[in-house]
Structure formats: structure tokens, C-alpha cells
Simulated scan of single mutants.
Amino acid sequence: MFKNCRRVRKSTFLQLVSMCCILSVLMVCWDQVDHHVVSHVKSYSYRYLISSYDFINKSLSVSPKEAAQFGSFPFLLNNENICKDQDVLLLLFVKSSPGNFKRRRAIRSTWGNESYIKNELGVIVKVVFAMGVHPDIPSKIIIQKTLHKEHMNHGDLIQQDFLDTFHNLTVKLLLQFRWTHENCAHARFLMTADDDVFIHLPNLVHHIQDLGRQNVRDLWIGHVHRGAPPIRQKNSKYYMSFEMYQWSSYPDYTAGAGYVVSGDVAAKIYQATLSLNASMYIDDVFMGICAILAGVSPQEHVYFSGEAKTPYHPCIYEKMITSHGHADDVRYLWKVATAPQVQEISSGLLGNLYCTAVKIMLLCKPYNSNTYSCMAAFT
């Protein structure tokens, strides 16, 4: 009996020591646990318990006069005739920064080459670059002169007089939808993408052509974030204060790196911007808020990437639409991704099985969550 008591006390003592160790670790790491686990649990619970996010729109509603102030910057560079008298399948807005000359050159010579698209794919895609002004005044003067020369040569820059910074990305979004409404409302589809995104234009064109034949409406496709929580850590680039957004979860939205909407959705989003407070500087989230007012929901497309690069492999290239993080290798990726042999790699039963196995190995890993999902391996 005495021995049993000693064993019980020893076991209890070990349990207490173990619990103290766990609590100590939690106290040290609580900040990380709270923001990376608890906030996501809260966010997902919140998203699926509420029936809609209509109350957010009511909270952010402003008068048309107030809403107009967020995007009422004069144009410094513009070309109102880009779409005039043309049957535009896709208007593609590339979010660029004034000093990113090399990126724009690479895009024009690869996936954004309008002549290639028209001659090889038989459709009209208009590619334009949206930007503000360089935030550094001494650099701004020199860069602005170079931008004027670039615009004279290509005529594809759309620039307004606001500082081109991270916190003005929503202003850039307003620019895109306003410009589309005024100058290219007849485009059947609108896409917005970052200038470090690679777009497989042949695959994208074939996909939206199929959608066009089906006369789709209310289309908004991309890499969807559902139940994402606001980040409350002040040292984060994406910090969101309670004063600006007090709710536990953002509405569903697509990653701003690249998404596509149908022409009717572009018109609805523009109308939504005319009555909302656009001080929300995370443009992806603001797009989600506008979509609530427009009555549109984002649809997941497994070959639109999030923030990460997609794996390099012909089996991936065959169906890829976008891949993020390509500042220096656009020309290489364009060459290998559009090579004729890519379309033959999965032909036949063996080819299909081979590519499925390859994609499972490349995509079905936890750390690939911000590129293509594992589901892409089976489509």
C-alpha cells in the first residue's frame, strides 16, 4: 500500500512538472500561438457562424462625394483609346511601380506581347500598366522623364498623381476599375495582376474563351482566401487596426497577385466603389468588401497561385495560369512553359498517370499551401 502511494505521488509530481513545462512554453510563445492558431480558429468560426457580411458594407458606406475623394487624382499618363473600336476579350491591368522598367520590358516581350497574342491565339488582349508616382522626390523627377519616353514608345502606361506605396494599393484598384468603366467597359473580361506575376496567356485565353462561349456572368476567379483573420501585430506589413476593421474575419477574397472577373462584375465593382470608404489599404480585402455589395463571390481556380512561386515542371506548365514571384526569370519561364512539347507530356494513359504522380509529389505538401493546392494534381 505504501509503495502504491509513493507511485501515485511520483506520477502526480511528473504530471505537474510536465504541465508546468507546457505552460511555460505557452507563456513564452503565446503571442505566436495566439496570432497563428487562435486567430485562425476565431476567424473560421466567425465566418461560418454569420450568415453574411452585409453589416460591414453598412459600416463602410459613405456618400458618393466622400467616396469620390479616394480616387480623384489627376492622370499624369493616359491613353484613352487603347480599347477603342476593338473587340477586346481581356483587359489586363498590371500593377506596376514607376521604377520597374525592367519588369515591364520583360512582360512586353513575353506573356504581355499583344502581337503574339493576336497572331498566335487569334484574340485581342490589351495589356496596360497602372501606377502612381515615385515616393522619393529627387528620384521622382528623373523617373518621370523616363516614364514619359516609355509611354511615348508603347502608349500603355496609366498613371495617376498619388504616391506609389503599399498603403495606396487600394487607390490603384480604384484607378483600374474607374479607367475600365470610362475607357474599356466593353471588354469581356478584366484581369489584374502584379508585375512580378507570370501569366500563361495561352492557357488563360483558352480558359476564358470557354467561359465566354458559356456566357458566364458573376465570374470572379483566382486563389481564394476564406475566413482569413486580420493581422493585429503592429510589426506586420499587413497590420490592421481595430479602428479600421474591428471584426474577427475578412470576407472571402482572391489573392491580389492575379485574378479575373467578367465584364459585368467589373461594372458592379466600379459601382460599389462609388459608395464605400476606401481607406482600407489592403486592396485584396477591399475587393472582397466591394464584392459583397455587388453580390459576387470568389471562385477558386486551382491554377491561380497565391504569394508563392509554382514548381518548375512541364506537367505544371501544361495547365498553369499564374505564378507569383517572378522578377528576374520571366523570359526563361515563358520559353519553357510555352514550348510545344509541354502540351504532349500528359497525352495518353501513361502520360496522364505520370503527370498526376509528379504533381502529387510537387503540390501535396503542407508548405505549398500558398501556391497551387493539392487538388490541382487531380485536374
Rank of each mutant, 00 (worst) to 15 (best):
L211V: 13
C29G: 15
N78C: 12
E300Y: 07
D164Q: 10
Y44T: 10
E300N: 13
M1R: 11
V197I: 15
L190A: 06
A376F: 04
L14H: 06
T180Y: 05
V265L: 09
P251I: 02
V358Q: 15
N4H: 10
R103Q: 12
D264V: 01
T379G: 05
C290K: 09
A308F: 09
T310P: 04
D252F: 01
F378Y: 07
S297C: 09
T110V: 00
G351K: 02
G348L: 11
L147K: 07
V216D: 12
D264C: 06
H154F: 09
F73M: 03
R6E: 11
V25K: 15
G122T: 08
L204I: 07
S373P: 04
I142L: 11
S369W: 03
T338R: 03
C355T: 02
I137S: 11
T273N: 14
E300R: 01
V265S: 15
N370Q: 14
C290M: 09
K10M: 05
N119R: 14
W30N: 15
L362Y: 05
K365T: 01
T146S: 10
S97K: 12
N78Y: 01
H35W: 11
K309P: 03
R9N: 13
P74M: 10
H134V: 00
K3M: 08
M287N: 13
T180V: 14
G351M: 15
Y259Q: 03
D252V: 02
D210Q: 03
S236N: 10
S346C: 13
K309M: 07
Y312F: 07
R108S: 02
V28R: 15
V216E: 06
I142G: 00
V260K: 02
D194K: 06
S275G: 14
V171L: 04
S45Q: 02
Y53C: 10
W247P: 15
N277G: 01
N153W: 01
M244H: 08
N78E: 03
G227C: 11
F166L: 09
G288T: 00
F162I: 01
I107V: 05
F378R: 10
A357Q: 03
E344M: 08
H36R: 14
T12P: 00
Y239D: 01
I208C: 15
N370E: 11
P98V: 00
A185Y: 04
G325A: 10
L274W: 00
C184D: 12
G258E: 00
V265P: 09
M375C: 04
H186C: 01
K102E: 05
I208F: 12
L190Y: 06
W247Q: 09
H225F: 11
T356G: 08
A267K: 08
T165E: 11
H36E: 10
I143D: 00
T356W: 14
H186N: 10
V33W: 05
H167C: 04
D196N: 12
I208V: 15
Q299C: 03
H324C: 00
R103G: 10
Q233S: 15
L76C: 00
M280D: 06
Y238G: 03
D210S: 07
S323Q: 03
Q144R: 10
R226F: 06
E80G: 11
V224C: 12
K95F: 12
L219H: 02
F70V: 13
D196A: 12
A68N: 04
V285P: 03
K65W: 05
A308N: 12
H36F: 06
W247Y: 15
N203W: 03
